[in-house]
Design a protein around this nucleic acid. Structure first.
Lengths: 154, 154
DNA sequence: ATCGTTGCAAAGTATTTGCATCGGT
DNA sequence: ACCGATGCAAATACTTTGCAACGAT
């Protein structure tokens, strides 16, 4: 789906919910969709401010649930204090592999997850809503020579 | 394994690390192992205080990593702000099913998880350390008649 | 002209830390 | 006696919220 189509879908979502289409919301939306990798609320604020300087941190936090609610973004929680977000491309059947050395998050497909969630939830009398699988791992390269090929920060 | 055996293992772990066996650490340990269900740091503080009133919040937070490090407890993060802990009984190959209606956490076995973690991590050049699978679901009973059989709070 | 939306700063929530004192070894 | 461990309160990190001004419909 093109950017414009996804953008339109977001605007339709806002309309359906009786919410207004504001410049700030669109700036945050465009900034979010431009990200190729996982990003935090704080990083999104910086990029959104570059588009529209009037965007505030509060509005970013208030807009993120709207974007996940309209399925434009997916929330990725790796249990590290802050939450990450990622543009929705394919399906929800993805797992995250988090490198403990370089903090990089890899997304990989996990086609069996949905089946598993359904099977197990129904057995408990529950209706599955979402599932997530996260693998924590360490760089083999880092272990052996002290350098992590994917290292970003620190 | 009996409580005494696990307790001894914890004390051995402390000794190995050059750490001291204090009354506070033992009170926190005993309180944690007495819990049958998932608990938070705050809940653990209450129970540990009942055993030894001198236990403080800071010591609970400082002791939790020691207990997970010695594999007496397992950390369970459901992405809800606070972390949960659970006594280790069997293996690590368990997944959590979280009911969005009643906040109850069900633990279920997921024997394929470890295989999956290894396969995928190695493909990325990573050494798997841990994996977790979490399914979010809703009570079917609650959806239909407004009551959740497992409801605890709220 | 409404009434939802915004920015700001203050508040909230979960957890961590500095420091003087305490207590295991 | 040494030096790690503790309680307390302050600090931190991320996110949420109250409120008066703003702006989309």
């Amino acid at each position: 789906m093109s950017h414009d189509a996804v953008r339109q879908k977001f605007q339709d979502f806002l309309a359906e919910q009786g919410l207004r289409v504001t410049n700030q919301r669109l700036a945050i939306f465009d900034a979010a969709l431009a990200q190729k990798e996982h990003f935090t609320a704080e990083q999104l604020l910086v990029h959104a401010k570059a588009i529209d300087d009037s965007v505030s941190r509060a509005t970013v936090y208030r807009t993120l649930p709207l974007m996940t609610g309209s399925h434009a973004l997916r929330e990725v929680d790796i249990g590290s204090g802050e939450k990450f977000y990622l543009r929705v491309t394919d399906s929800n059947q993805v797992a995250q592999v988090v490198c403990l050395d370089c903090d990089k998050i890899f997304e990989i497909s996990a086609p069996f997850m949905e089946w598993y969630g359904s099977t197990v939830s129904l057995k408990l009398g529950l209706k599955p809503v979402a599932q997530r699988l996260q693998v924590s791992a360490q760089c083999i390269a880092y272990r052996s020579n002290g350098r992590c090929p994917n290292r970003l920060k620190k």
